[in-house]
Amino acid sequence: MSADPRSGDPDAPEEWEAVFWDVGGVVLDLESVRAAHTAFVADLLERRDVDATIEEAIAAWRSAVGDHFRERDGTAFRAARDGYHKGIEAVVGEPIPRAEWKPPFREAVRSSIEPVPGAVETVERLAARDLHVGVVSDVDDEEGRWMLEQFGVREAFDSITTSEEVGRTKPDPAMFETALEKAGVAPERSLMIGDRYEHDVEGAAEAGLHGVAFGAEDGPAVSYRIESPLEILEIVDGERDE
């Protein structure tokens, strides 16, 4: 399949049946997530009177959260909320009950996160068409749905498939197979938009879907490369040179 967005996908169907979205980096702007975490850690330092600079605290947070995911067994699911719990303990020096840290964490996220420009409009416009619009994401189930609600697009999605639900993370084929089964669509008539080549694009291609790279690395599994989510509308409408 071609990685050149102007050459199109030689295997593209006459009509698409489904468009699946990753969340982080595709719908949710990741820089805004990092800003949310920084704001939360800064507030944590102040509330718990921790003797550390914000730079030191953020480094401890990122190391602990990163280790949490790096210790994952293959594609087995690991909840982000458990990673955050470990990150908080690394910053403060002791565990804090989840009921205590979750409300301020949620508020920091709510006030900081932003959608990727064009993503909300594209999802809404796709939802008005006769095709399935779904999510295939490694996010925690509750948190992923909550973030989509913050952007007002939760109800625009016909299905949401998360790693917590499936028990695996992308590129495990179970993620894509579950999403396709929910949608009742053929993989060869489906698009998957992602910002990571191996997980989103190649994983989708191996399951028979057409991978759309949005910031993802190049590679043979890329059927389309886009610079804005709005370009998905051109693909669905067959306006790319095929």
Score class of each variant (00 low, 15 high):
V136R: 04
F77M: 00
P171M: 03
V65T: 12
V26L: 08
E15Y: 15
L44Q: 04
V153N: 03
Y224S: 00
S32L: 01
A57V: 02
D49P: 06
H68D: 12
E17T: 11
I96C: 07
G134L: 02
L44P: 01
S63L: 13
I58M: 15
G66K: 08
V50G: 04
E107C: 00
G211W: 01
G25M: 11
Q150W: 12
A128P: 11
G215H: 07
F176R: 05
I235Y: 04
G194W: 00
E177K: 14
W16K: 01
F77K: 01
S163Y: 09
E239N: 13
A59E: 07
G184A: 00
V26E: 02
T162M: 09
A36Y: 09
Y197Q: 00
V50Q: 03
E100I: 11
L44G: 02
G219P: 01
V92E: 05
G194C: 02
D172M: 03
E188P: 02
A52W: 09
D43M: 02
R62W: 15
G87S: 11
D9Y: 08
I160D: 00
A80R: 12
D73G: 07
E124Y: 02
V19Q: 04
D51V: 07
R106A: 02
D49I: 11
D195K: 12
E206P: 01
V120W: 04
I54E: 14
A119P: 11
V139F: 15
R225K: 10
A128C: 06
K170E: 00
D138L: 03
V222L: 05
D141F: 14
P229N: 06
S190F: 13
E56D: 13
V133E: 08
A76L: 14
E31S: 11
R81D: 11
F214D: 01
S7A: 14
S63D: 15
R168D: 04
A57L: 02
A204C: 12
D241C: 10
E94D: 11
R168N: 06
A216C: 07
E94K: 14
D200V: 05
E107D: 10
S111Q: 13
E143Y: 15
K102H: 13
V27I: 12
D11F: 13
G219Y: 00
R240H: 15
E206H: 15
E143F: 15
A127S: 14
S111D: 14
E114F: 04
E46C: 06
P229Y: 02
A42Y: 08
M175N: 02
I96D: 04
E198P: 03
V19C: 06
V41D: 06
L126I: 08
A127I: 06
A52C: 08
H199N: 13
P13T: 12
A179Q: 03
F176W: 04
E143D: 13
R110A: 12
A90C: 07
G208I: 03
L45P: 04
A156Y: 08
E206C: 06
I226D: 01
A39D: 04
A156W: 07
A90Y: 10
L45H: 09
F40H: 01
R240L: 14
A99Y: 10
A205V: 04
R34N: 11
R129T: 10
A156T: 12
D51Y: 11
D67W: 11
W146H: 09
G134H: 03
A79V: 08
R70F: 10
A179C: 09
I88N: 05
